[in-house]
Design a binder for these strands. Sequence first.
DNA 1: CGCAAAATATGATTTATGTCATATGGGCTG
DNA 2: CAGCCCATATGACATAAATCATATTTTGCG
Lengths: 240, 240
Amino acid sequence: MATKKNIKISCAFCASKKDSLFSDLNKDDLESLDIHKSCIMYKKGQTLYYEGTRPMGLFCLNSGKVKVYKITSDGKEQILNLAKAGDFIGYRALISEEFYNASATVIEEGAICYIPKADFLSILNNNPRFFKRMMQRLCDDLGIMEQKLVTIAQKSVRERLAATLLMLKESYGLEGEENSTLIDIALSREDLANIIGTATETVIRLLSEFKNQELISLQGKKIKVLDPQGLVKEADFYGI
Amino acid sequence: MATKKNIKISCAFCASKKDSLFSDLNKDDLESLDIHKSCIMYKKGQTLYYEGTRPMGLFCLNSGKVKVYKITSDGKEQILNLAKAGDFIGYRALISEEFYNASATVIEEGAICYIPKADFLSILNNNPRFFKRMMQRLCDDLGIMEQKLVTIAQKSVRERLAATLLMLKESYGLEGEENSTLIDIALSREDLANIIGTATETVIRLLSEFKNQELISLQGKKIKVLDPQGLVKEADFYGI
DNA sequence: CGCAAAATATGATTTATGTCATATGGGCTG
DNA sequence: CAGCCCATATGACATAAATCATATTTTGCG
């Protein structure tokens, strides 16, 4: 295995910080983050942490994409969250001082920073503004998770797939010609199935149907949304 | 409609407080809660709040039981949470200053206190210990919700029902003779279906099967768990 | 107390989705 | 650049669960 090169990325000048939780930290706090921070390149497939292990710090994506997931007793994977540049992951276990209850694996390579637990908790405890911000984030996460639960519990696989495509379009959409939007994230059909909670074959089949209905187009792995309104109709609601 | 009688229940002496979030507030904070608090009896079927409305305070159950649920666009109900004596509900919307994104309805009558938003937020903002406690609670809620999502997404209805019965046994179990445990909460088969995310008939059928397997016994609405280990086997894991 | 309405129970049938099998294609590695 | 492997694709079939229908029992109400 090659030696991992530590990349120098300053939180104070990190472009990904723009809309992250760190976005309104003051200069001192941001500089204190840099002191013990490490920042390395991760390749696709590398795992940041495993469910059941103890968090020692906070991961912050400077670039790349990560999936956060749980594995059931019978070996099935359920993706709980996707993270992209600017996103934190693993903060909940850190805050509540528990073991991770999900795993995180890189799905698109990128630079990921790691802030030691002590530094993160120090800011959390000494900066009430940041503490509040974190609390707000947890509230948001909870709301999102509740909505996902309802969708998975009450909607058909077809509806969930349509809703998921719309959600992915929001988060990863690249505008193309003729109103088409490329979903710019390297998700396999299996990953997609593991977001929705269904079988890989079912996703493949339904994507084919959506293609035949000219709601989407498929160029290999990547999916392009042609008719978002049509998908909204299929989803019978908006947002998974 | 009868006039609602305001019951005098002091937070400082509330028996239900024992294991609530208020359990380690100091005397002054507890007394400040009492000043503007109201406490009235709610009957089965009464709704505490509706999704989409603005929270004006915090509900705290002195007694009785409440279901918290969302209604989908096509009118199906998904129960997110059940609350009993000592439980708070609606704190997330209050903290994040948003509209409720679920509704709450009484399923067993009881006395429910209502603490105005300002009083709750005042304690939250002035008592860092309580703030921390709240944050911890949100973390726990999030973990629970994630686990529920995984279960609903990846487990069969049969497994989910078994898991739900075990969960209900933990929260509402009354030990009876011969190792049997009565699940002491007035849930209809429909409610049960709306926890699990399935059709009422399916719940009824599966309960019959579990009865035939002598895992449970049915006396009208109420369910008695006879063989928890058998249910664990059916659930293939523990805890929904 | 008796009736109506709702909840529970069970059967018959349909359907969406899972599973298994096999073919095809794209991309990575030596 | 070739070959292999994994992802995608599609078909055939199995099945869990939804839906619709109809008893039967329980509950609440006047």
